[in-house]
């Protein structure tokens, strides 16, 4: 590391290196279209390492698509995504860039985890195996190590006693907490949270959010969070981005966005969310 810490000295560390300088995630003129529908429209933004960003906005504004692009569940139509200073949506080929291949993506997305709206636990496995499979098969942990990790994480999410249960025996809130533990077991540097409480009964939401608060306070995981839970967003995030029609309508500190929104669209949106009882 050079002694002077100027932006010019930005090297291109891998995601695994703990980025000290330069943004971790860079969206560069990203366009995503589904047929004729433009979901993301020449989008530019950065996320710093360790930053927690909440994405809000009406449905169809492109928030979830951003997470799905980062998880490589979708491919960009135009533009580029870089992570840790290296191309992510594309890979170096010759002197230029080519769309990323499956094996390139596998290598690059190792440090990214995602929690889904519908939990997506594997019904053919117990809770323990749900958490263990990826550490064993992807990270190469031994079964004992992975099992210990599963126990530790289940204690963290308050479900230590459910380790040998089947997902179908758990409530939605419990399933979602297992899903969080499953994502954390991969020790991700970036955690994507896609409306993780939207499918839950109201009385189960608090338990899940408490777990995420704990994760936010005790780790330096970079988090991108799509949610309608404005209280949670205000508590944990460093920055809130308001999306509308595939573009960022407004962004800023949560206190500013929630307390003193500038844009008319943000005001209307926040009002509608409050009225709907979220």
């Amino acid at each position: 590391m050079p002694p002077s810490d100027t932006p010019e000295n930005t090297t291109a560390p891998g995601v695994g290196d703990g980025v000290a300088d330069g943004p971790l995630i860079v969206f560069d003129q990203v366009v995503k279209r589904f047929g004729d529908l433009t979901v993301l429209d020449h989008l530019d933004f950065d996320v710093a390492a360790g930053e927690r960003v909440t994405l809000i906005g009406p449905s169809g504004s492109g928030k979830t698509t951003i997470l799905r692009l980062l998880m490589t569940l979708e491919k960009v139509t135009e533009g580029r995504i870089n992570i840790g200073g290296e191309p992510f949506s594309h890979m170096p080929k010759g002197s230029g860039l080519a769309p990323a291949s499956e094996s390139y993506l596998r290598r690059r997305r190792k440090s990214i985890g995602m929690v889904f709206q519908q939990f997506n636990l594997f019904p053919n496995m117990t809770v323990r195996r749900n958490i263990m499979e990826a550490p064993v098969n992807v990270l190469g942990l031994s079964k004992d190590e992975a099992s210990a990790r599963a126990e530790e994480l289940l204690d963290l999410v308050g479900l230590g006693d459910k380790i040998d249960a089947h997902p179908t025996q758990l409530s939605g809130g419990q399933q979602q907490r297992v899903a969080i533990a499953r994502a954390l077991a991969m020790r991700p540097e970036i955690l994507l949270l896609d409306e993780v409480t939207s499918a839950l009964d109201p009385e189960l939401v608090a338990g899940v959010l408490d777990v995420l608060r704990e994760v936010a306070e005790t780790t330096d995981i970079t988090m991108l969070c799509v949610t309608h839970e404005m209280g949670f967003a205000r508590d944990v995030s460093h920055r809130v981005m308001m999306f509308d029609e595939g573009r960022i309508a407004e962004e800023g500190h949560p206190d500013q966005i929630f307390g003193d929104p500038q844009e008319e669209r943000t005001k209307t949106f926040l009002k509608s969310v409050l009225e709907n009882g979220h």
């Binding site: 998880m71 490589t72 569940l73 596998r106 997305r109 190792k110 990214i112 985890g113 995602m114 889904f116 997506n120 636990l121 594997f122 499979e133 990826a134 098969n137 992807v138 499953r182 994502a183 991969m186 994507l192």
Partner: peptide, 8 residues
């Protein structure tokens, strides 16, 4: 999609 997220 969940298997992709776990990088299997």
């Amino acid at each position: 999609e969940a298997t992709v997220a776990l990088n299997l």
